[in-house]
Design a protein around this nucleic acid. Structure first.
Length: 588
RNA sequence: GCGCCCGUAGCUCAGCGGAUAGAGCAGGGGACUUCUAAUCCCAAGGCCGCAGGUUCGAAUCCUGCCGGGCGCGCCA
């Protein structure tokens, strides 16, 4: 068989993993024993290729000796030729070894499928993912970085699994702060800083000065409040000024997304202001359905188990006592629209963990109002705070939040130094591009690699050390594979299923085979760090293979098999990195 | 006060019902005429916060403590 040239016919092929095939085998054997309820629980093992742990639980339910049952299961495993050995071990594990031929066949199957055998379990499912959520006229900071990167990775994985994904960037483009911004701009028309697209300097300066005047000058604060009224009333000049500010910010956000390699565009931005006209009706409906009640002049939704320090119930405030609407109202309006008009089957909100209570209240309210059917899950995909090296929330020395662009610039600059040192012939634009790929990859990987709900310690030293468990390690492993494949040009990567495998080759195939299952886990728990862990393990397994199994210096069918291994490793690493939003250059 | 999250190697973190708890970094010892050494190999490093409970089996599930973070009416 010749590997990369077999055309794909019809629907994408799904290659069941060896683990799931074994699970079916054990289930079938158990069924023959009249134990259809036995859950095989196949997992990798140090003592064999795989182990099945399900017999122990089944034995408990029957009050029988687990080793006896395990022996019966082993005796009834159908001999499909793929299982080389099945043995009872320990208290009642079933150890399973596969033949080299079975592993090589699996390698072939994944390699001949352009999707590497990954199925499309998300087909027909529409997910709305809400992420990034920057605020107009404000800098993006590290908190936005987390939301943006995690959200982008989840979007990519869900789409890769065949799902329909609607990205929603719920931008903060409405609120009382626009009164002071516009009013300040009107009173000080001279530009405070150049309005170049690459920076937020003008708006940031405007924001700072407007805020200072607002706090220090009651007369200005009063004019700013009147400006808010004018904005809400639709005064043309004020609305035009607002639009300009929004547009200036949006250009900046788009530039940041481009630098990050995040696929968020203008079309994905639906700001809070988009729901303005829906809010009064929404409030009325909540009131009519008796979901919300008036308390101290505000329209509130209460919850039995949510109380404040004084023991009084804590409300979700849908409409403030002054008649205005806050973000609870816009979140509800957005949710209703996503289910009702976008027909979402699932809602994800990639937002800071501190908002947990807010989302509980919003989801609960929406359920009560009938806007969120029981069949549609709404999930707060929470993430922890970004901490500095001191264990406190990450701030600059001056105590300001760290600008996202500064962080990226630092990462890319340091990556450029390292790339240039290792690869002196690289220069100019090529070097800049490589530095961007490595630097942003390092930032993203460092963020995605740990469990998202934990607070996350941002440590540029570690992240940009470019060694160890980092994005660069994965990029490097990928580049080494590509290097071999490039040198092997003209040599066919053919799989000969009759050639015996060395331990490092077996380990590599077993790891490669777990890719699709890993993606399913990522999607099931919205946990990109599982993909990072998988890819890192794969890269380590590959480097062990790389050290022990010469590819190009081997000849004959063994070389073909190893080239096939390299190809599938390279494709898996590249695909996995892409799903994390990280580039996989051919060379470093 | 109540609620949510987190306590695993010196540091940063995986593992979340299965056999002897794993990585990376730091520190110790080795390996470059080599398909990219941005790498690999070896050794060392643990009352998995504490105490009970459930289970054939607990870092993992339950309860209670201790320690840390966050949240709790008109900001988002």
């Amino acid at each position: 068989m010749t590997i990369p040239f077999i055309p794909c016919q019809g629907a994408p092929v799904t290659v069941p993993s060896l683990a799931s095939s074994l699970s079916d085998c054990v289930s079938a054997a158990a069924a023959r024993l009249g134990m259809a309820d036995l859950a095989p629980q196949i997992r990798r093992s140090e003592h064999a290729d795989f182990q099945s742990d399900g017999v122990l639980a089944a034995a408990r339910a029957r009050r029988r000796n687990p080793r006896e049952i395990a022996a019966e299961v082993v005796a009834r495993l159908s001999a499909d030729g793929r299982v080389a050995a099945a043995q009872v071990a320990g208290p009642g594990f079933v150890n399973l070894d596969l033949t080299d031929g079975a592993l090589l066949a699996q390698l072939t199957d994944r390699l001949t499928d352009p999707r590497l055998g990954v199925g499309t379990p998300e087909a027909g499912v529409t997910t709305v993912v809400d992420y990034s959520q920057p605020n107009i006229a404000k800098e993006m900071h590290v908190g936005h970085l987390r939301s943006t990167i995690i959200g982008d990775a989840l979007v990519r994985v869900l789409e890769h699994l065949g799902g329909t994904v609607v990205r929603r960037n719920h931008i903060g483009d409405w609120g009382t702060q626009f009164g002071m911004l516009i009013q300040h701009q009107v009173e000080h028309p001279e530009p405070t800083a150049p309005q170049d697209a690459g920076t937020m300097r003008r708006l940031a300066t405007l924001y700072r000065r407007a805020r200072a005047d607002f706090d220090a000058d009651p007369a200005f604060a009063d004019r700013a409040r009147r400006r808010v009224v004018a904005l809400q009333a639709g005064d043309p000049a004020t609305v035009a000024a607002w639009r300009d500010i929004v547009a200036e910010s949006t250009r900046y956000f788009t530039e940041v997304y481009d630098r990050l390699g995040v696929r968020l565009t203008d079309a994905d931005s639906v700001g809070e202001s988009a729901y303005n006209t829906a809010l009064p009706g929404l409030a009325d409906e909540l009131e009519r359905r008796r979901v919300a009640v008036t308390s101290d002049g505000a329209l509130c939704v209460f919850f039995d188990d949510l109380r404040g320090p004084d023991g009084e119930p804590t409300p979700l405030i849908v409409r403030k006592s002054d008649g205005g609407f806050g973000y609870a109202a816009t979140d509800l309006a957005a949710l209703r629209q996503r289910v009702g008009e976008l027909h979402a089957d699932r809602l994800l909100y990639v937002v800071d963990a501190r908002q947990a209570r807010h989302f509980r209240m919003v989801f609960d309210t929406a359920r009560r109002a009938g806007w969120l059917p029981p069949t549609v899950p709404a999930v707060h995909v929470a993430f922890g705070t970004v901490l500095g090296p001191d264990g406190r929330p990450f701030k600059t020395r001056a105590g300001d939040t760290v600008r996202l662009v500064d962080l990226l610039t630092e990462a890319v600059d340091r990556a450029r130094d390292v790339v240039a040192a290792k690869n002196p012939e690289l220069a100019g634009e090529a070097l800049d591009e490589r530095a961007r790929q490595v630097g942003t990859g390092a930032v993203k990987y460092a963020d995605l690699a740990n469990n998202r709900v934990r607070d996350y310690t941002y440590d540029p030293q570690r992240m940009l050390a470019l060694t160890g468990n980092t994005g660069v390690y994965l990029q490097y492993a990928h580049a080494r594979v590509r290097s071999i494949l490039a040198r092997a040009e003209g040599v066919e990567a053919t799989v000969d299923p009759t050639v015996g495998l060395e331990p490092a080759e077996r380990a590599l195939i077993l790891d490669l085979d777990a890719f699709a299952d890993t993606l399913a886990e990522v999607a099931a728990g919205y946990e990109p760090h599982r993909l990072c862990g998988y890819l890192y393990r794969l890269a380590q397994t590959f480097t062990t293979f790389y050290e022990r199994c010469p590819v190009l210096r081997t000849t004959g069918t063994r070389r073909g098999n190893r080239l096939a291994l390299c190809r599938l490793t390279g494709d898996t690493l590249r695909t996995g990195l892409h799903l994390l939003g990280i580039d996989a250059p051919e060379q470093l």
